Computed example of a mutant assay.
Amino acid sequence: MTERTYFAPMGGHPPQTDLLTDRAVFTDAYAVIPKGTMRDIVTSFLPFWEDTRLWVIARPLSGFAETFSHYIMEVQPGGGSDRPELDEGAQGVLFVVEGEVAVTVGGEAHVLTPGSYAYIPAGADWSLRNESGAVTRFHWIRKAYEAVEGIDRPEPLILNEADIAPTVMPDTNGAWATTRFVDPNDLRHDMHVTIVTFQPGGVIPFLETHVMEHGLYVLEGKAVYKLNNDWVEVEAGDYMWLRAFCPQACYAGGPGPFRYLLYKDVNRHMGLPRRG
Rank of each mutant, 00 (worst) to 15 (best):
D28T: 13
T209S: 15
H210Q: 14
P170K: 08
P247C: 09
H210M: 11
N130T: 10
D238R: 08
F7C: 04
L242R: 06
R23G: 05
L94G: 07
H139Y: 04
Y263R: 02
T209F: 08
L20C: 05
Y225F: 12
A244L: 12
S69H: 02
E74K: 10
V196L: 09
A144P: 10
T179E: 04
F181N: 02
V218L: 10
G115W: 06
K226W: 12
P114W: 09
R129M: 04
V135A: 15
W140I: 03
Y119I: 06
V96A: 14
G78L: 07
D82C: 05
H192V: 05
G256L: 10
A118P: 00
E85Y: 01
G150V: 00
R243H: 01
G256C: 10
R153M: 14
Q248L: 11
L86G: 15
R180C: 08
H269C: 07
T194R: 03
L219W: 01
G215Q: 13
V105M: 11
G92V: 01
L54Q: 09
G221F: 01
I120W: 06
T2W: 05
F7T: 03
E155G: 02
H214M: 07
M1R: 06
H70Y: 13
H13M: 08
E146P: 00
I195E: 02
W176L: 13
Y30F: 14
M73V: 07
I141E: 15
L112T: 11
E85W: 00
P184A: 02
P114Y: 08
G174M: 06
E85T: 13
F258C: 04
A109W: 04
V103N: 13
G36D: 15
G106H: 05
E100V: 15
N185F: 12
E149F: 14
C250Q: 06
F68G: 02
P114D: 12
T21H: 10
V105P: 00
F7E: 03
F68H: 13
V182S: 01
G107P: 08
G201W: 10
F138R: 00
G36T: 12
W176D: 07
I33Q: 04
G276L: 07
Q16V: 05
M10F: 03
P84R: 02
N130I: 10
A144K: 15
F198N: 12
R275A: 11
A223D: 09
G107Q: 11
P247F: 02
F68W: 06
R137Q: 12
G78M: 11
G89F: 07
V135N: 11
H70D: 05
F7L: 01
Q199K: 15
